[in-house]
Computed example of a mutant assay.
Amino acid sequence: MCGAVNPEEEFECVSCGEELQQTQSAQNEFQSIRAKDVFGRSWELFWQYPGVCLLGPLLANILYVLVCILMFVIGLLVFMGLSLVMPENSLLLVLPMIFLGLIALVMLLYVVAYFELGKVILFMRVAQDEQPALSNIFAGGQFTGRMVLCSLLFELLIFFANMVFVLAGYALALLFWPYPYLLVDRNLPGVESFGKAVDVTKGNLITLFLVFLSLFGLVILEAVALIGLAYLMVAQLSLPPGPVVGVACLLGVAGGLFLYSFLQLVKAVAYVQITRAA
């Protein structure tokens, strides 16, 4: 307006007070999305990278279970070793086990956060069409500490909200779910990611609600369809129930893996569409 030169960080002109362009850009930082676009893009990307989308979360969850089993075995061996050298029901046996149990709990939280971040990074790469790889599930190390604290805070918020009113927790989950994506995408401090998460979701709450409700409906539809088909095969076609139930369980696991992977991709695509300018 006046031709004055302003420092980059200023929001108003130091000479005439005119609002600078960067303020207007900041107001348009997040975009409105449509459920159709989110599902369409997610479906396209899923079949562009089917192996990564299916195997990534499966591998992460298998490794998580293996680590949990390893921790349990180590804890059991330690307990057996201590019980051999200490009197039964001794306080000297109880206290070390409590201490080791707390250490195991902290380690478990870190393992959960590590692999959850790995899945976030993997599906963010898919959503941005940036050549994702299974190795992405091991890329969350630098964010793990903040993720542990944020996850604890998130779960506590949901728990206490549900104690007040059962649907309040779901409302908060809808507001704050992008916090791990912000941790990874913008390397934000832990608590700050919650405030920014509300900025991401508040303009798209109805759309996000419809998206997640549709995915929940698909889960219910899959369960009803499998139960119904199994019943018809046993009751109407007189097929042996054992094999029918076995096949239904296998189909349920396969369908569950697909829906879980697709949900992860839908969340990443929704985040990318909201936070990236068209």
Rank of each mutant, 00 (worst) to 15 (best):
147 M>V: 01
74 I>F: 11
218 L>V: 06
149 L>I: 11
128 Q>H: 11
27 Q>D: 03
265 L>Q: 09
263 L>C: 08
133 A>V: 11
56 G>T: 11
109 L>G: 15
127 A>E: 12
276 R>T: 14
127 A>K: 04
269 V>C: 12
128 Q>R: 14
186 R>H: 11
104 A>S: 15
79 F>D: 02
15 S>V: 12
270 A>N: 04
164 V>S: 02
134 L>M: 10
97 M>A: 15
158 I>S: 03
181 Y>F: 15
32 S>L: 12
73 V>Q: 04
199 D>M: 13
128 Q>K: 15
205 L>R: 07
179 Y>I: 01
39 F>Q: 03
222 E>N: 04
233 M>R: 01
206 I>S: 10
82 L>W: 07
148 V>R: 09
53 C>N: 15
256 G>R: 11
95 L>H: 07
10 E>T: 06
240 P>G: 09
110 Y>M: 12
176 F>A: 03
176 F>S: 01
72 F>T: 02
48 Q>L: 15
103 I>Q: 15
229 L>Y: 00
128 Q>F: 06
5 V>N: 08
139 A>E: 14
156 L>T: 05
154 F>P: 07
275 T>Y: 03
23 T>M: 09
29 E>N: 02
40 G>A: 03
211 V>E: 06
260 Y>H: 12
11 F>M: 07
142 Q>G: 14
199 D>G: 08
209 F>Q: 01
229 L>D: 00
247 V>I: 13
94 V>C: 05
275 T>K: 12
270 A>L: 07
275 T>P: 01
66 L>Y: 05
111 V>I: 15
161 A>P: 10
129 D>N: 15
61 N>E: 06
233 M>S: 08
107 M>I: 15
234 V>L: 05
209 F>D: 00
136 N>V: 00
196 K>V: 08
103 I>E: 13
110 Y>C: 09
163 M>T: 09
99 F>N: 08
108 L>R: 12
229 L>G: 00
146 R>D: 07
26 A>L: 12
62 I>S: 01
42 S>D: 08
35 A>D: 00
214 S>E: 00
73 V>T: 06
208 L>I: 06
134 L>C: 09
215 L>P: 08
173 A>F: 09
169 G>C: 11
26 A>N: 10
149 L>N: 03
7 P>K: 15
92 L>P: 07
239 L>S: 07
10 E>D: 13
126 V>T: 08
65 V>Y: 03
142 Q>N: 14
71 M>N: 00
111 V>D: 11
158 I>L: 14
203 G>P: 01
264 Q>N: 13
117 L>F: 02
182 L>P: 05
132 P>C: 00
235 A>F: 11
34 R>C: 00
175 L>H: 05
140 G>T: 06
87 P>F: 06
160 F>Y: 12
66 L>I: 05
266 V>I: 11
49 Y>D: 12
